[in-house]
């Protein structure tokens, strides 16, 4: 009888200990990766390769996401505000929700799917085929060579992507507003500019940097610690995407609280 009560408790305890241990391990991994950013040798070519892969090749998905989000925001907020005869608020709602929230979060989720998975799969394959061990025997620190450049590239690329997403999202909203909802183009753009504050954009870009770091970190960590052949790598890839997506949403709340809570 006792085991009926104790077994689930023990399982819960084990899970909690496991979670704490993983958090500690990821934290140490992150510290080591960051410490390599400032210690030579630097692998500029690897950084640039990862940066182009993230910033340039994620542009299409991020751009499409942003445009459609801006369009749907304009449409939805218009139907909502029309009930109070407050249609003029559409421009401000579109630009503020895009720059503060939806731009960073949606771009980060898209990039987590693309890049987190790619990092985990590539580094995980290198782990299970002994390539990471081979790096060590070839006078190269795998943390410095594989992990540090990728995490840095993700951290710097995400804000750039989000800046593009902000602009394109506003454009999407403007398209719907002028061509479908009957706004005057100049007036819509003017109220967009009037309502937008520097802090809206800056906070969004800061979030983007944090999200980029999380994507790079979880992707490389899951790959680096993967075990057990093709299956292990598959599991690492899934974990990288799931873990970074959840962390992005949780951190988004925490950062919003930190930036805007009174």
């Amino acid at each position: 009888m006792a085991s009926l009560v104790l077994d689930p408790l023990a399982a819960l305890g084990r899970a909690a200990i496991g979670a704490c241990r993983a958090t500690g391990a990821v934290g140490l991994f992150a510290l080591e990766a960051v410490s390599h950013w400032v210690r030579p040798p630097f692998y500029g070519r690897l950084f640039w390769g990862a940066f182009v892969e993230i910033a340039w090749f994620s542009l299409p998905v991020v751009a499409l996401t942003a445009v459609f989000t801006g369009m749907v925001l304009a449409l939805q907020s218009y139907t909502g505000f029309a009930r109070f005869n407050a249609q003029s608020a559409v421009a401000s709602v579109v630009v503020i929700s895009l720059t503060r929230e939806l731009g960073p979060v949606l771009a980060a989720l898209m990039v987590a799917g693309r890049i987190g998975a790619a990092f985990a799969a590539e580094i995980g394959t290198m782990r299970v085929t002994d390539q990471i061990d081979a790096l060590t025997t070839l006078s190269t620190d795998p943390m410095k060579y594989l992990v540090a450049p990728r995490v840095l590239a993700a951290t710097l690329a995400l804000p750039l992507l989000v800046l593009v997403a902000d602009v394109l999202g506003v454009m999407g909203g403007w398209l719907i507003a002028t061509f479908k909802l009957g706004f005057v183009s100049a007036a819509y753009l003017k109220s967009t500019a009037d309502f937008l504050q520097t802090m809206d954009v800056v906070s969004g870009l800061a979030k983007a940097g944090v999200f980029g770091f999380v994507i790079g970190l979880m992707g490389t960590w899951c790959g680096y610690t993967s075990r057990g052949g093709a299956r292990g790598v598959g599991g690492a890839t899934t974990l990288a995407v799931v873990a970074s997506s959840i962390l992005i949403l949780a951190l988004d709340y925490a950062l919003t609280e930190a930036f805007f809570a009174q």
């Binding site: 002994d130 390539q131 081979a134």
Partner: peptide, 20 residues
């Protein structure tokens, strides 16, 4: 230990070539 490792070569059982 790193300096020591710099003077050692290793052929892995499965090759472990960098495919990138």
């Amino acid at each position: 230990r790193q300096e020591m490792a710099d003077r050692i070569g290793m052929l892995f059982q499965n090759g472990a070539l960098f495919d990138s």
